[in-house]
């Protein structure tokens, strides 16, 4: 039987009259990589910051490792690694000093782990934090979040600023940590990243969870943005209404967002007179606009 690492029940946070999150509930199980997606401003960071006791909830409860997130934050933190979306540290320190301080805060000897992560992420630890680019600060954040081999890794928009090669290495590291038993809460607004790494996903919009589903279900109903240049007009009802959204015709150019199984749309397209075709991933905003109204 699997145990819940994170358990959020009816969590709400209001800033005065402004809504942060409202009635958010979900669980993350041991060893799970749980995606948390939603457009910017949906409440992802607010939820995460409440879990980390950086902000205090207005109502509801949040537990990590069966401990109350607010009352026992410092005990929980021993086994949690957190990478914020904007990684900022003490500007006057070198990377080496900062990572040493970070390890000291966990009261652990993390030298071997720091060296390994530094090497894999190609991080120069002799430089001052103030001299680092955004991407390099993010690498420091990754090392600082993982140096103590936490049982729960909380990542908020972790790939912002990382170049594609480092992104690959980062995903490898995450998979390794997960194999070792760490649960991961992966918050992002990039659907493809979440689809790639997560086994389950919660979708948040305007502060409320609107869906929690297995990644397989989400993949099955994968979203595609299709752009066609056609030589013959397409009949109005050629595509089923429930699988196509935002259908637009401009001259011989047709665009729409498709939701459904890939072979079915290929089959449909095969029967059309097409000069050119582009299929790409729609932005999360586009998906939300048309499917999660």
């Amino acid at each position: 039987m699997s145990t819940n690492v994170i358990e959020i029940k009816n969590l709400s946070k209001f800033y005065g009259k402004h809504r942060g999150i409202e009635d958010v509930s979900f669980t993350v199980e041991e060893g799970e990589i749980f995606g948390f997606i939603g457009p910017n401003g949906a409440g992802k960071s607010t939820t995460i910051r409440t879990l980390l006791a950086l902000i205090h909830p207005t109502s509801g409860s949040a537990n990590i490792f069966n401990m109350d997130c607010v009352k026992e934050a410092h005990k929980i933190a021993k086994n949690v690694g957190y990478l914020p979306s904007e990684a900022y540290y003490y500007e006057n320190m070198t990377v080496k000093e900062l990572l040493k301080y970070s390890a000291e805060l966990y009261q652990m000897d993390c030298n071997a782990r720091i060296d390994e992560l530094k090497e894999r992420l190609k991080l120069d630890d002799t430089r001052k934090i103030s001299d680092l680019s955004f991407g390099n600060k993010k690498k420091v954040g990754i090392v600082a979040a993982l140096l103590h081999s936490p049982k729960l890794i909380i990542l908020d928009e972790p790939t912002n600023g990382l170049d594609p090669l480092i992104k690959e290495t980062f995903f490898e590291i995450l998979k390794e940590e997960n194999k070792k038993g760490a649960a991961i809460l992966y918050s992002s607004h990039v659907l493809s990243e979440v689809q790639r790494i997560c086994s389950k996903v919660a979708i948040i919009k305007e502060g409320r969870i609107i869906n929690v589903q297995n990644m397989n279900e989400l993949r099955k109903n994968g979203y595609k943005k299709v752009q066609l240049i056609v030589s013959e007009p397409i009949a109005k009802d050629y595509f089923k209404e429930d699988s196509v959204a935002d259908y637009k015709v401009k001259g011989n150019q047709v665009t729409f967002i498709y939701r459904g199984e890939a072979d079915k749309i290929i089959e449909k397209l095969y029967n059309l007179k097409i000069e050119d075709v582009f299929i790409e991933e729609p932005t999360l905003e586009e998906i939300f606009l048309h499917y999660y109204k």
């Binding site: 950086l54 934050a73 933190a77 914020p84 900022y88 970070s102 805060l105 966990y106």
Partner: peptide, 17 residues
């Protein structure tokens, strides 16, 4: 000022400490 509050306050030390 340095935006380092997230770093410090998510470590295993209570705010009181």
């Amino acid at each position: 000022k340095q935006n380092s509050a997230d770093f410090l306050l998510t470590k295993p030390w209570s705010r009181g400490n």
